[in-house]
Design a protein around this nucleic acid. Structure first.
Lengths: 100, 100
DNA sequence: ATCGTAGTACGAAGTTCTTCGTACAAGCTA
DNA sequence: TAGCTTGTACGAAGAACTTCGTACTACGAT
């Protein structure tokens, strides 16, 4: 079983989170996850970029601690780490989602 | 009298604001302005970078609409546009300042 | 076992960002 | 006027970011 590295909640860095969310493509992903579409595979996002670029953006979000990724077969299910983000940076994700 | 361009409140872009605030040096500036030290000249910030780099960072903040800059003699007085930011992106600046 | 699907690794290209130094402009002060 | 202070313009170097294509791995289905 393949596993993916995720930062712990207490290790989340504001720099990384803001940089990750400053990109419109990555905010598209977060927006879609926040709109109740949890546990979606990467391919379900129909991003306007190639496959390897898509991988890159999901990785940035995961390494910043914005999303959680776990394998299910060959696919990866993505989930927004909204609870963790709220605990570490109260109000931040809410404000950014509201502004999008 | 020299003047400086500022985006209008309704034209503030989330992309630009988040990118501007994703940089630690620029957050230092914002933090200091938020801590009641309004109307400070650029030189008062003692940033760990050269003079022209400092100019660059203040310009990024101004063009994103995060700060207001106006000339007073040869100096520039900097003010946080907290009211404008709150109007356009409610809770965003507050959350970022709280997390810093 | 073979094939298809979902995503990764790697290298490359092009762009943008950060930083710097030097030379310069604008305004105050003596 | 001459000199000082504050910040800008410009060019350059290096780092980081975004994007891509191709080859690859892992897993499931046929």
């Amino acid at each position: 079983m393949r596993t993916l590295e995720h930062p712990r909640t207490e290790d989340l860095q504001l720099d990384a989170v803001l940089s990750a969310l400053a990109d419109p493509i990555r905010r598209t992903i977060v927006r879609q996850l926040a709109d109740g579409h949890a546990d979606q595979a990467c391919i379900a996002f129909a991003l306007p970029v190639g496959k390897s670029t898509s991988t890159h953006h999901f990785r940035v979000l995961r390494e910043a601690g914005v999303i959680e990724q776990r394998y299910q077969g060959t696919a990866i299910l993505n989930t927004l780490r909204d609870t963790d983000l709220e605990a570490r940076f109260p109000g931040l994700l809410t404000a950014i989602l509201a502004a999008t």
